[in-house]
Write a protein that binds this DNA or RNA. Structure first.
Lengths: 229, 229
DNA sequence: CGGTTATTTGAAATACGTCAATTCAAGTGG
DNA sequence: CCACTTGAATTGACGTATTTCAAATAACCG
């Protein structure tokens, strides 16, 4: 149960035994929510949490129903800490599948006071990673074409799923959800997916992504940074 | 000279006299750069700075020349602190006009160690604001139409320029720059501007924006958060 | 004033969105 | 095991927002 969380934090530091225990201890206080539940509402005061299992997304909904998804929250990742003004959160977090969450406020405070290295360092690192992802997402939204967006997105998800370079990985998202993340209509996304499938680049089916040709996908993406340093 | 910086920091806390002196002291170490200069290169280690005068932008350039601007840096604002992975900055900051900058690393460290309130609090607040702006920007890029993007952008700039609700304010950006921020072609941006001008909503000329009808502009934007809480 | 950069406009191509149906997959209850 | 329901995926036809190409001003600068 603690595996996803430990795996993510462990990527940045070797965790001490008592830190691992602290994480295990968190698990007992977890809560379960059904898909569609609002885990964290925009305008409420910030409340950092960990997502132990399932998928969620951070988003904003416009008056007329249009939706922009800012980021996805994968098992073991945190949410609810960033981008608040006057203590007011600026984004809503919604469960996409059945999920389990646990409050991380006290845990994070303890980590910060314990040591600037170790756990605290790992938590900071995941936040920085989130920041960097946001920049990529902005480039994707503003400057990539639909097929580039999709290719780029699939590769990001492959990497984040931990299944580096694996031929298939879990991607429990509907096309509607993906389209709201990429800023494209569902219908158009569907057509782009058909195209990519026919070229044997990716194949989405039943919540699983099959990558037929990772190199080809990367080629379909215009990698962000220029060659020059 | 210190005015823009003091004004921005002062929005969040009443600054103590020695804090004001510290800011004034910074000024003496300022450096001047010409338009087009790269103030901060992606991949370099993070180095927080203040922009004392002039305008800059944070951006990324794609291989094929496409550019996405993440945010603008106005006089008195800071840059170079956020979103780094492994200490590597993820964005490039470029001077759009002639600018003056000063290194803020030591200054910020001192503020943090001095007190969790006062100056440090103000600095944190500006960073949170930047975060929130990024979310708005994502919605704009992903879910607004060109004319909505422009209206939304003008209103953001009006607010940030401090000239709340003023009929005109400085906006020293070329249409090319604006188009790279909004994820639209220059040509199309130009046509949208013509449209908005003909409706007497905004008028850009000579680096100054004239807002003819702020209410109308707001109506042309789909305000992000939904009515429900 | 000449040279460069920014703005503006037209015409044509296309990427993408909307509307409306149809198919498909996955329950659910009988 | 079979209707029956529901939500997601898929497809066609059509309209439009936006891009690209090319060229003509207009503004800027030494």
């Amino acid at each position: 149960m603690a595996a996803p969380l430990l795996r993510r934090l462990g990527r940045f530091t070797a965790l001490a035994l008592d830190e691992i225990d602290a994480v295990r201890d968190l698990i007992s206080r977890r809560k379960r929510w059904r898909p569609g539940t609002t885990l964290f509402a925009e305008g409420r005061s910030a409340a950092p949490q960990f997502l132990l299992s399932g998928w969620a997304c951070s988003q904003r909904v416009l008056r007329d129903g249009r939706r922009q998804i800012f980021d996805f929250v994968l098992p073991g990742e945190g949410f609810g800490s960033g981008s608040a003004v006057d203590g007011q959160a600026r984004q809503t977090v919604v469960a996409l599948t059945s999920v389990e969450t646990v409050d991380a406020g006290a845990f994070i405070d303890a980590a910060r006071e314990a040591s600037p290295h170790g756990l605290w360092r790992a938590i900071r690192a995941t936040e920085k990673e989130e920041d960097a992802r946001r920049l990529e997402h902005m480039v994707r939204l503003g400057r990539l074409m639909a097929h580039e967006k999709v290719a780029h997105f699939i590769l990001e998800m492959q990497r984040r799923s931990g299944a580096d370079n694996a031929a298939s990985f879990a991607l429990p998202l509907t096309q509607e959800t993906i389209s709201d993340a990429l800023g494209v209509s569902v219908v158009h996304l569907n057509r782009v997916l058909r195209q990519l499938r026919s070229e044997n680049l990716v194949h989405l089916r039943g919540g699983v992504a099959f990558v037929g040709n990772a190199k080809g996908l990367a080629a379909a993406t215009v990698l962000p940074p220029p060659p020059s340093g």
